[in-house]
Design a protein around this nucleic acid. Sequence first.
DNA 1: CCCGGCGCCTGAGGGC
DNA 2: TGCCCTCAGGCGCCGG
Length: 274
Amino acid sequence: MPELPEVQTIVNDLQVLAGDKITGFWTRFAKAIKTKGFEKEIIGKKILAVRRIGKNVVIDLAGGKAIVMHLKMTGKLLVTSHQSSVIGHQKEKHLHHIFYLKKNGVLEFHDIRKFATLEIADEKKLAKMIEERGVDPLSREFTAKKLSEILEKRKGKSVKSVLMDQAAISGIGNIYASEIPFDAKISPLRKAGSLDKDEISSLCRSTLKILRKAVRLRGTSFSDYRDASGKKGSFQNHLKAYGKAGEKCSACGMIIEKAIVGQRSTFYCPRCQK
DNA sequence: CCCGGCGCCTGAGGGC
DNA sequence: TGCCCTCAGGCGCCGG
C-alpha cells in the first residue's frame, strides 16, 4: 500500500521520464479515469517533471496541465520496454492502463484492487490540492511547532487518526501510523491534545526519522508494493509494530497488541508506548 | 460541521 | 477439494 515513502521512491524512479513525450495511451478500465477527454489532454504532450503531492504521483505536462495518479492500495507504475508491454497486456489481468512514450518505452499502470485513479488537473486544481492537503512531513514547514498546532486543532482525536489525516499531515498511511508512534514511544490511542511539549518534539523527530529511513530503503513491500522497476522495497524488514501483534516488542519484550482505530488495525507496545 | 460507517475491489487464508 | 467467510485498506460519500 503505497504511502509517502513508496510514492516518493516511485517518483524518484520516474525522473527518467522528464523530457520524454507521450505518444499514445491504452486503457481497459476507463472507470478509474476521472477526467473526460483524458487521452486528448495527454497525447503528444511533453513531460516536464514528475513530483509527489501527498500520496499522489503528479506528471507535469507542457501546456500547464498535469496527470494526477493515486495508487490507493495496490496500484503500481512500471517503466518497461514497449515490446514486453504489448506482449504483457494480453495476459496480465491487472495491467489496466499503458502510456506509450517516445524515448522510454512505456509506463504501465497495474492495479489488483481497482481502487486507483487517474485524472487531469490544471494549475488551479493543483494549487487547490496542495492547499487542502496539509503539511508534507518531508518539507521544511514540518516542525514541532507546526505539529503542535495540528494536534491542538484536533485535540479530541487519537494520535493515530491525526497522523493519518491527509488534511492535517499529507502522506502517512496505516503502516507508518503504527511505526511512528512506536519509535516515539507514544501510544497511538492517546488523545492528540494530551501530548506535552517533549512528546510532540519526539513525535516530530520520529516522523522524520521513520519516513526518511523508509525512503532510503525504497519503501515497505508488506504485500503488493513494488517500485517503478518492479522491485520490492526493504523497510518491511525494519517494521517494529505494524503486523507484529502477538510478537515480542523489540525494545522491551512485551507482547505487541492490536487495536482498531478508525476501523483500521493499529499496532503498539502497551509497555513502551505511554 | 464533524463523526462514524459503508462501498469500492480482489486475493489470500482459514474453517469446515 | 472446494466453498464461503473474513480481512486487508485509502478515501469519497452519505446520513445522523
